[in-house]
Design a protein around this nucleic acid. Sequence first.
RNA 1: CGGGGUGUAGCGCAGUCUGGCUAGCGUAUCUGCUUUGGGAGCAGGAGGUCGGAGGUUCGAAUCCUCUCACCCCGACCA
Length: 527
Amino acid sequence: MSKEKEKEKGSKAVATAISPTRTEDYPEWYQQVVKAADLAELSPARGCMVIKPWGYGIWENIQKILDKRFKETGHQNAYFPLFIPKSFLEKEAEHVEGFAKECAVVTHHRLEKGPDGGLVPAGPLSEPYIVRPTSETIIGAMFAKWIRSYRDLPLLINQWANVVRWEMRTRLFLRTTEFLWQEGHTVHATAEDAREETLRMLDVYTDFCEGSLAIPIVRGEKTESERFPGAVNTYSIEPMMQDRKALQGGTSHFLGQNFAKASEIKYLDQAGAEQFAWTTSWGVSTRLIGALVMSHADDNGLILPPRVAPTHIIIMPMVHKVGTEEKVMEYCNSLANELRAKIYAGREVEVHIDRRDLRGGEKMWSWIKKGAPICMEIGPRDVDAGAVFFYRRDQEPGKKANMPRAEFVAKVGEILEDIQGALFRRANNFMMENTRLIDCKEEFYAFFTPKNAEKPEIHGGYALTHWSGESSVEAKIKEDLNVTIRCIPFVDERSPIRALLEGDRAPAVCPFTGKASRGRVLFAKAY
RNA sequence: CGGGGUGUAGCGCAGUCUGGCUAGCGUAUCUGCUUUGGGAGCAGGAGGUCGGAGGUUCGAAUCCUCUCACCCCGACCA
């Protein structure tokens, strides 16, 4: 409250647009950024969110980019029902175990007037429906009907849908009762093909996350305890948020023949023998928008990477001086049209002229909080000079630049890509600064223990540490520190942690047990 | 489900312990004037079943009982 007062009267310098700041109270800062950017809000339905136009615009761009990649990799979209007969979910033992507790169940149909004038269900269903928490079982049942021969394979299907998971605690975008996602489901003749597909889609997610969301990630395989229920192998991408916690950004599962056997997905091979097929599934959700916020936003609000920003450039006409309005508006309109004719990252440059009857400062701050990549102030001065006056959201709000109009129009794609690149580098530096090799138990515990136990400060990060491979060690660390193995990382040419591991001469010994280790795994606190 | 907390104007809150005039403040909103290239100023207006039900009392936002919702910490977890 005292902060509010500081902001008031007299002082033109406002500390930050978002209060509290990240260091003051990170979870609250997150909520405030989502609110200030007008991305989404809680709804009357418990744990469910309303995604508002600016937030949904981001999701639409995520969809467009990913959908194109899915098509390019041979997939087709289809749609399956929201409701799954309860018996379907019961088919795969581990799957039931994993999801049963978080399912919403529909037990009645139709409503009629009750004695008190309210509505009461007319009758129970003979078999309850589950609202899909994921669609493996119902899609598997359909696939079993569609597939007869090896000639029907591979079957490569994707679905854009909503799913429901009845979580105890929810947070906008990060964990909501209902969320939007895509789920890919594929069927293959051989284990090799299915494994290849699983990793191909992990690559697609990696490209998308790094290239479009400007979020660096560590990727790798999940340990047994973190595996998708029913999967043989689960792979994930793991970006680091600004509080140094990991957030699982997407997963790709090799399901082996588990679901094929449960759903009887069989085909006749070239020799005429009946075989169970091999399946995969993979998905990303609106959670990525949460990752976007926590990767790039600062104490003034959201910062959007241009490739997924609903609008690239905001033009604010300064038309308050009498007699200048017409020429300023004309200039803005023609400038907007010139910019819209440009293509950036495969789509037209999106320009919005903000003519709201608001004071300049207030208007500009609203776009800072929404994270628009470029914001222009165009007044008579600029019209006369044939220039544009703009700021970039990846730089300090006070840093504005003049540029000849023609030059800006010519370079707009370059400037947007420069912003995109700057965001990635910043996030990547942050992740690498907070990633280290840890080889002793004491250092590991100190790394993940906040100095202030009452109100933990931002601490920890990614620890690359040897591990004996025992689940009991994982469980103990989780109990002690709430730290888990995020993945057994890939160390390939595109891995950001590769450089760290190059000079690694430490013995491959698990610091928790003294036993031999097959390699370093990624430990972190997580969302 | 366990522990703690909060429900008063769109949002944020005071008032509750110690019952008492017409229920207040900030902000947002609306109107007017003056302003305007970094979050405006003055004036006026509108906006309330004090979460809900029952009880005590001459009188309840305030006390009692029940209930509902939400938040935080656990537990749970894409």
